[in-house]
Every structure is written in structure tokens, then in C-alpha cells.
Amino acid sequence: MNRPTADRLADEAAQCLAEWKADASWQDLCDRALTHLTRWPTLLGTPVICCLDLDRDGGPLLEQAARALAVKAAGHILAGPDLPAMLPVAVPVEDAVVAFTAQVDLLRGVTDRAGVRLVQHTPANVLPYRAGCLTHDAYAAAWGEPPARYWLDHDTVAARQEHLLDLYTSTGLKPGSHTIAFETGR
């Protein structure tokens, strides 16, 4: 762990998030991101959370996503466009990040008014989130230990995704396709 880097990221991330939350459009952004998260869940992202209930988990999960975005924004501020792309985020939190980024106009307005540039893209290979990685250390320095319910380590996520895939396959579903034949009118 590079403690000075994590501490600098933490300070910058906390400042970014505080500025975003002070924006008049922040609550509207969160409301719309929550709608997105509940309407369009993925098969292998948020469902890896044990006993997921988006009525209960949606708000806290979006808070985690906002913090993840703030850490990535801090990475861009401190190191340019390369560091944020290398900061791993736990899979269910990343799903919630997508719910924020789907609100592109609102999010851009909030971040532009704060003078912060977000760098967010899907990496070619999923970066494994684990305790002790730079994202974890920066988060912990800014807000305390990340909630384990949402910040699941890579190995736990992989095992749960495999279990979900087995369940989905048994019903004829798999990511990207299915074998379900719908009757006309249904």
C-alpha cells in the first residue's frame, strides 16, 4: 500500500463528494440513479449481494457508488486519466456507478459545477477489488472501512457469480441470451 497516495486520494475524494452533495441537482441525480438501478439490474452485479433488496439496499448502494466515483475523480485530479482506469471497484458498487453515469446530463452538470472531471469506462479486463488495494485504502482513509455487504472482494464475487450462473442456466437464462420461447401476446 502506498499510504501517502491513498491519503491524498482520500482528501481529494472527500472534497469532491462534499461539493457534489452540496449541488442543487444532487438529490435529483440520486433519485434518477435509484430508478435506473431498480429498473435495470444486471444478472451478475448487484445480485451477488446476499439477500439483495433494492428497496432497502438501493440508497446505501448509491452512496457507495458516489464514493467510488469520488475516488476515481480524485485519481484524475491527482494523476491524470490513467489512474482512475486502474482503480478497482467492487462489482455491485460498479453496477450502482453505472446507474449514476446513465444520468449523463445531470451527473455532468453536478461535476462540472464542482470543477471535477470524471473518468469512467469499462475496462477490457475486470480489475479485482480486494481489501488493501488503492481504492480500498483511499476509501478507508476518507470514510472509514467500506461496508463489506457492498464492497465484496473479487473471490467472493466470482464464487457468487458462478452460483448465480448455475441458477440462471437451470432456468434457461445466461448473460446475453436465453432459451425461453415466449408465446404470442405474452
Rank of each mutant, 00 (worst) to 15 (best):
M1I: 08
R3D: 11
A6G: 12
D7L: 14
A10V: 00
E12Y: 03
A13D: 04
A14E: 05
Q15G: 13
C16K: 01
L17G: 05
E19A: 06
W20P: 06
A22K: 07
W26A: 00
W26K: 11
D28M: 10
A33H: 04
A33R: 12
L34T: 13
L34G: 08
T35E: 15
T35A: 03
H36M: 10
H36T: 12
H36W: 14
H36G: 06
T38N: 11
R39L: 10
W40N: 11
W40P: 01
T42L: 00
L43F: 14
V48I: 08
I49P: 00
D53A: 04
D53L: 07
L54T: 10
D55P: 01
D55C: 07
G59M: 03
L62S: 11
L62I: 11
A65T: 09
A66H: 08
R67C: 05
L69W: 01
K72E: 13
A74S: 04
G75K: 01
G75Q: 13
H76R: 08
D82S: 12
L83R: 03
P84E: 01
P84M: 14
P84T: 02
P84N: 01
A85M: 05
M86V: 00
M86C: 13
P88N: 07
P88T: 01
P88A: 11
A90Y: 02
P92F: 03
D95E: 15
V97Q: 10
V98Y: 09
V98E: 02
F100V: 02
F100M: 06
A102H: 15
A102S: 15
R108P: 03
T111I: 09
R113N: 14
A114N: 07
G115P: 03
R117F: 08
L118T: 03
L118Q: 08
V119I: 02
H121I: 00
P123Q: 06
P123Y: 04
A124P: 01
Y129W: 13
A131W: 04
G132R: 00
G132Y: 00
A140N: 05
G144R: 00
G144C: 04
G144T: 02
E145F: 09
P147N: 10
A148M: 13
A148E: 13
R149W: 10
W151D: 01
L152W: 12
L152Y: 11
D153W: 00
H154N: 02
D155Y: 00
D155S: 15
A158W: 05
A158C: 11
A158Y: 07
A159G: 12
E162Y: 02
L164R: 03
D166G: 07
L167Y: 07
L167M: 11
Y168K: 08
T169I: 06
S170A: 15
T171D: 04
G172A: 15
G172V: 08
L173T: 03
L173M: 14
K174A: 12
G176D: 03
S177N: 05
S177L: 09
H178S: 14
I180A: 05
A181T: 12
A181I: 09
F182Y: 12
F182T: 09
T184N: 12
